[in-house]
């Protein structure tokens, strides 16, 4: 049976929500997540950097119509870690 892995990096509430907002999609813009979570640029950047350093999130900056857009997507490792973490939480709750 597959062992679900608790992940302390993802466990922080904001980081868990960032992963949950990106997970159903291919990628989501930084500003969308900021608006949904109602946090400041600096707070979100800090969490995104932590997830990026862990190899869970890929950050892509693109310029469209003269405006820079920052797209966030879950890496394969990030998706696996997120799914494993959620499953581990559900196992704990029972």
């Amino acid at each position: 049976m597959k062992e679900h892995q608790f992940d302390s990096i993802i466990h922080a509430p904001n980081r868990l929500q960032i992963c949950a907002l990106i997970a159903p999609n291919s990628s989501v813009e930084f500003s969308v997540i900021k608006e949904q979570l109602n946090v400041s640029d600096s707070v979100l950047s800090k969490h995104v950097k932590t997830l990026e350093d862990a190899g869970y999130i890929q950050v892509e900056k693109k310029i469209a119509n003269g405006r820079q857009r920052t797209w966030l997507s879950l890496t394969k490792a990030g998706r696996g870690a997120f799914d494993g973490h959620v499953a581990a939480l559900r196992e704990i709750v029972g």
Partner: peptide, 18 residues
């Protein structure tokens, strides 16, 4: 278990936003 429930609540909140 309470902390796990709390985390799952945050997750549900994010899922509803999505």
């Amino acid at each position: 278990v309470e902390e796990a429930k709390d985390a799952l609540m945050h997750l549900d909140n994010a899922n509803q936003l999505a």
